[in-house]
Amino acid sequence: MARPNLDLIAALRRTARKIEKGSPYQWGHMGSCNCGNLAQELTRLTKAEIHVHALANGRGDWNEQLNDYCPTSGLPMDLLIGEMMEAGLDPDDLKQLERLSDVRILQRLPAEKRYLRHNFRDDVVLYISEWANMLEEQLLAPIKLPHFEWSEQTVLS
């Protein structure tokens, strides 16, 4: 599961916003699919650069790239995936993002919205947005604020 952190949450929110506002989205393109759009935010590579890295490995889609990921290979796509891992993701997060299949995220959605289609812009935006919300809740959960009772004397002090 993703390691909740501010940079990752912000990247997820930027990704969802960009896709929602019409950023290039094409599920069959390694640089502009679900993972490709998030990779753009985390790595600052363009969709074309991501696509070229993926084709250079010759391994197919994101799922296959992640199955074959080797952090020490030095291959451009493995370096890109490594950068995404450093941001707090793991290979399963990305595989599930590509298929919109993380049960923990889907269970948070209204029942009528749980059957998402991986090649539909609105479904991708919903999934990524809810993922960001979930990670934010996980990040904030351990923070305990002191209980403070307000009184007229407190306000006057």
Rank of each mutant, 00 (worst) to 15 (best):
E112C: 04
T72Q: 13
C35V: 09
M77Y: 03
A141S: 11
I81W: 10
M84W: 11
L66W: 04
E86M: 10
E20C: 02
L140Y: 08
P71L: 04
R99D: 13
L8G: 00
V155A: 14
W131M: 06
A56R: 13
R114H: 07
L116V: 02
E149K: 12
G58V: 06
L139Q: 13
E86R: 15
C70Q: 12
R117Y: 07
H118G: 02
R17I: 00
E112G: 04
W150C: 03
K144N: 13
K95T: 10
N57A: 08
P142Q: 11
E83Q: 15
S101T: 12
F148M: 12
L100E: 14
W150I: 06
M134S: 10
E98R: 08
I81P: 02
Y69M: 01
Y127M: 04
E137R: 11
R99T: 14
K21Q: 14
E64D: 10
E83T: 10
K47T: 04
T154G: 01
L55W: 05
P146Y: 08
H29K: 02
V103Q: 15
G36K: 11
N37P: 01
M77T: 08
L38G: 02
E149C: 02
G88W: 11
S157P: 00
L156K: 15
A132W: 11
I19A: 00
T46E: 10
C35Y: 02
A54P: 02
I105T: 15
L106Q: 14
I105G: 03
E86Q: 15
T46N: 07
C70F: 01
A16G: 09
A10Q: 12
K21M: 07
R44I: 00
L100M: 14
M1C: 00
E49T: 06
L45I: 00
L106R: 15
L12Q: 10
S101C: 12
L6C: 02
C33M: 09
H147K: 14
P110C: 08
C70W: 03
E152M: 10
D78G: 02
P76C: 04
V103R: 15
L80F: 05
T43M: 03
Q153A: 12
G31V: 03
E98T: 11
T15M: 11
L140W: 08
Q96K: 14
I50G: 03
A11G: 07
M84Q: 13
G88E: 13
D92N: 14
Q153G: 01
Q65V: 03
G74Y: 12
T154V: 11
I9S: 02
L6K: 13
H51C: 01
Y25P: 00
H147W: 10
D92Q: 15
V103N: 13
T46K: 07
A48M: 05
D92H: 13
I50V: 01
Y115T: 07
I81D: 10
Q107N: 15
D90Q: 15
Y115L: 06
Q40W: 01
L145T: 09
L100G: 11
S151F: 09
L75V: 03
W131H: 06
A132N: 11
D102C: 13
W150N: 07
R44E: 12
L126N: 03
T154L: 14
Q138D: 13
V103K: 15
H29S: 01
I105F: 09
Y25G: 00
D92R: 15
V125W: 06
F120K: 12
L139T: 04
V103D: 15
R13G: 01
P146V: 05
